[in-house]
């Protein structure tokens, strides 16, 4: 069995999770604590990947990254890098598509945070940096963990958007889900089974961990 697609999927999952962990915090903070009305409109844009067909995102991302126009042209002309059909392209697409997963976890965590703890930290002379790492993060670690697991698991299952924007380049953009699709198309059911079973074997424990965590968080909130 060719293990390379697993390696590509795992790398995709780790990159997406890492990037969204950093990008997700300020967004989740804005969505939870801002009282401005326009925030709902922004938040809804970031929730779109939940309901849009992955091909819709894939199509527009492809146009954006294509060397003919937009971001793709800029990168091609200034750095000589082709974005479409590259690993960074599927990481980018993966980030957009998994953002709602990360936000779900982080928002739950932030909602459980008592505002008076933040104010207490301020009256004790601490700035936002120290407050964030010593009060906010330890207080919402359950939510962070939920976000991380959801995002990583989501990325392992990424298919449509990766296929449209990354193609299926072996060792570069061919992730497990695409490998399964190709094996089925080639009527190689044995290999398809093998890939699928490994994927289930990874996904199931992740989801079990997730559900245990969410039970624990629910009990803590009560």
């Amino acid at each position: 069995m060719d293990w390379v697609p697993f390696w590509v999927s795992a790398q995709l999952g780790l990159w997406v999770t890492g990037i969204l962990l950093v990008v997700g915090f300020p967004l989740a903070w804005l969505f939870v604590f801002s009282r401005r009305r326009w925030v709902v409109w922004i938040e809804s844009v970031f929730s779109l990947p939940l309901v849009l067909a992955p091909t819709v995102m894939g199509f527009y991302l492809l146009l954006l990254l294509s060397p003919q126009n937009g971001l793709g042209r800029f990168f091609e002309e200034t750095f000589g890098v082709r974005l479409a059909f590259s690993f960074p392209a599927i990481v980018f697409a993966g980030c957009i598509s998994a953002l709602p997963s990360m936000l779900a976890g982080l928002k739950t965590g932030l909602l459980g945070l008592s505002p008076s703890l933040l104010e207490a930290s301020a009256t004790l002379g601490k700035g936002w940096f120290e407050t964030f790492f010593r009060v906010v993060l330890p207080q919402m670690k359950g939510g962070v963990l939920v976000g991380v697991i959801l995002t990583f698991a989501h990325s392992l299952g990424e298919f449509g958007v990766v296929l449209m924007i990354g193609g299926s380049l072996p060792g570069v953009t061919k992730v497990v889900s695409i490998a399964i699709y190709e094996r089925v198309e080639a009527l190689d059911f044995g290999a398809a089974h093998a890939y699928a079973l490994v994927l289930i074997g990874v996904a199931y424990p992740l989801v079990v961990a997730l559900n245990f965590l969410q039970r624990q968080e629910a009990r803590r909130a009560r």
Binding site: S114, S116, L117, E119, A120, T123, V135, P138, Q139
Partner: peptide, 11 residues
Amino acid sequence: LVFQDYALFPH
């Protein structure tokens, strides 16, 4: 400031 709910850090 001593908050009404004390605002002690639970962790």
